[in-house]
Simulated scan of single mutants.
Amino acid sequence: MARPAGRRPRGRPRTSKDIVLQGDNPVINIKPRNEIRPQTKCHPGLHTSVPAGFYLQDHWTSLVCDGKSFPSAELVSGCLKNKQILMMGDSTLRQWFEYLEKQVPTLKRLNLFTSRQSGPFEVVDLQSNTRIIWRAHGVPIRTSKTPWADLHYIAREVEDLAGGPHTVVVFTLWAHFTTYPLASYIHRLAVIHRAVASLLRRSPATLVVIKSANTGYKDVYGSDWLSWQLDQVLKTMFRDLPVVLIDVWQMTSCHYSPDNIHPTPVVIQNEVDLFLSFVCPEWKHLVK
């Protein structure tokens, strides 16, 4: 005997796909491109809206500020000219470092004989007077065999910086704290907050950029749920300071690429492009 249409097989549990949600027919209004993109230049202290942007043909359009694309090595190199960039965090920020290294052939890596996972790594470009350092944050961290002396705490590094208009500080802190009490994470952020606030008082022209957590963490050590909780604490802790927050949580959650804690190259490119938009808000002088 045939089963009536619309009936589930006996014993099959009800899932979200079996539920019909009632609602009105949506109305989609398509606006001109110039009415969607914000005209505000990218600068520290901007509020991150929800949504913070959207993807169209693999290009992220920011709704926070006037983000730009840097598709060529010349544009990226021009933006990084005379910049000293210190990146500190986990492997999701190391992806930014590796992208810039690959994108700009004139950036040459120095052999520091350090761990391939936790660094530190350094690239320099003598033509544009650019120096970029990436290093893993201090413990807790899960990595390969690494000299203890190479694991520096973010706050200590920030405290040792003179800062200035040619200095850019970038950090992220979340993935390696998912197996620790929230109080430990809050204490670490409070120490970093104090160091960043001190840096901005003595050198207000210093650009401080915070990369948020991203989605795709499905592992025995953590999950998106735990990452999201830490991310909310991070955003709350630094909302009183004139810093830049790159909300990659939104940028990774709404892309069609497979779920992965390490996003695909196209997502990384959009993240770095948004970062460079804050480094070079006056981008027009880069275009020849």
Rank of each mutant, 00 (worst) to 15 (best):
A2N: 10
P4D: 02
G6D: 09
R8S: 14
P9W: 09
P13G: 02
G23A: 13
D24H: 14
N25S: 05
P26Y: 09
I28S: 02
K31S: 02
K31C: 00
R33S: 06
I36D: 12
R37T: 03
C42Q: 04
C42I: 00
P44Y: 09
P44Q: 01
T48C: 07
P51S: 07
P51R: 12
Q57E: 15
D58H: 08
W60F: 12
V64T: 08
K68T: 01
K68Q: 14
F70H: 02
F70V: 00
P71G: 06
S72D: 09
A73F: 10
S77M: 11
S77R: 02
M87D: 04
S91R: 02
R94A: 03
W96Q: 03
F97N: 00
L100R: 04
L100K: 01
K102M: 11
K102N: 13
V104Q: 03
K108T: 12
R109H: 15
R109C: 14
N111M: 08
S115T: 09
Q117G: 11
F121R: 00
L126F: 12
T130V: 07
T130S: 05
R131C: 06
W134V: 00
W134F: 14
G138N: 10
G138I: 05
R142V: 00
R142H: 12
S144K: 11
K145E: 08
K145M: 11
K145T: 04
P147W: 13
P147V: 07
A149C: 09
D150Y: 13
D150K: 10
A155R: 04
R156F: 15
L161W: 01
L161R: 03
G164E: 09
P165D: 15
H166M: 02
V169K: 01
V170F: 08
H176T: 04
T178V: 11
T178S: 13
Y180R: 10
L182R: 11
L182P: 01
H187Y: 13
H187A: 11
L189T: 02
V191M: 12
I192A: 02
H193M: 05
H193Y: 07
A195D: 14
V196T: 04
A197D: 05
L199C: 06
R202S: 03
P204F: 15
T206D: 08
V209I: 09
I210K: 07
T215R: 06
T215A: 07
T215D: 07
T215C: 09
G216W: 06
S223H: 11
D224P: 07
W225D: 13
W225P: 00
W225L: 12
L226F: 14
S227A: 15
W228P: 00
D231P: 00
D231V: 04
Q232K: 12
Q232G: 08
K235F: 08
T236S: 15
F238P: 04
D240N: 03
P242Q: 02
P242G: 01
V243H: 04
L245S: 07
D247Y: 08
Q250W: 05
T252D: 03
C254E: 01
D259E: 14
N260R: 08
N260Q: 14
I268H: 05
N270T: 10
D273Q: 09
D273E: 14
F275W: 07
L276Y: 06
L276G: 00
L276N: 01
S277T: 13
F278W: 05
V279G: 00
P281Q: 07
W283C: 00
W283M: 01
K284L: 06
K284S: 10
V287W: 15
K288V: 06
K288Y: 14
